Simulated scan of single mutants.
Amino acid sequence: MIERVIATNATIQLINKLKEKHGEVMFHQSGGCCDGSSPMCYPKGELRIGANDVLLGEIAGCEFFISKDQYHYWKHTQLIIDVVNGRGGMFSLEGPEGQRFLTRSRVFTDEELKELGF
């Protein structure tokens, strides 16, 4: 099965640290408003998910959502959630950790797109 969103080992380590502090968490790929286009991490259930959000998959056992509009543009890519040094988004849980989540991507191969139904 082709995963639409995956996480690096560094990301999984940071997620586990955040889970120890905050309990279960969830992600939403930001649309570029206040915190740019960073993946945002929230305590599970804190962000209201609506009809305009798509469950892209899970990373480290945490649901990862993206807006339908963004999904439309990124549906041909796999999102790779990574971690870099620096201040995270002001609304995202990793903000005070000295690291921030970052979205990288790669275009699916023709074979993967076929498996995904494109």
Score class of each variant (00 low, 15 high):
47 L>E: 11
55 L>K: 11
26 M>W: 11
30 S>T: 09
55 L>H: 09
18 L>H: 03
41 C>A: 14
29 Q>D: 13
58 E>C: 03
23 G>W: 09
60 A>P: 05
60 A>Y: 04
65 F>I: 08
60 A>E: 12
71 Y>H: 12
87 R>H: 09
47 L>N: 08
54 V>Q: 05
43 P>E: 09
71 Y>E: 06
48 R>M: 14
62 C>M: 11
34 C>E: 15
94 E>A: 12
70 Q>L: 10
53 D>I: 08
98 G>W: 13
30 S>C: 13
10 A>V: 06
74 W>P: 02
92 S>G: 14
74 W>R: 02
12 I>M: 05
74 W>E: 04
93 L>A: 10
32 G>A: 01
15 I>G: 04
79 L>I: 13
84 V>P: 03
47 L>S: 06
98 G>P: 06
61 G>M: 07
32 G>F: 01
22 H>C: 06
23 G>D: 04
86 G>P: 03
28 H>E: 14
43 P>H: 02
31 G>M: 04
43 P>A: 03
72 H>A: 11
18 L>I: 13
31 G>N: 01
96 P>V: 08
97 E>C: 14
44 K>T: 04
25 V>S: 02
80 I>C: 02
77 T>W: 01
59 I>T: 00
19 K>H: 07
99 Q>S: 12
76 H>M: 06
92 S>K: 10
79 L>F: 14
14 L>M: 11
35 D>H: 02
67 S>C: 09
92 S>R: 12
96 P>C: 11
34 C>Y: 14
27 F>D: 02
32 G>Y: 00
78 Q>W: 04
19 K>T: 10
42 Y>N: 05
23 G>M: 11
66 I>H: 06
9 N>S: 12
30 S>F: 00
85 N>C: 10
77 T>Q: 10
31 G>H: 01
58 E>P: 03
59 I>Y: 00
86 G>R: 03
18 L>C: 08
45 G>V: 05
16 N>W: 05
13 Q>G: 08
39 P>S: 09
48 R>F: 11
39 P>N: 02
88 G>T: 09
22 H>L: 09
64 F>W: 03
14 L>F: 07
64 F>P: 00
32 G>P: 01
67 S>Q: 10
74 W>A: 03
98 G>Y: 13
36 G>A: 11
96 P>N: 13
85 N>K: 12
49 I>K: 07
43 P>V: 07
15 I>M: 10
31 G>I: 06
66 I>Q: 04
23 G>R: 08
29 Q>K: 08
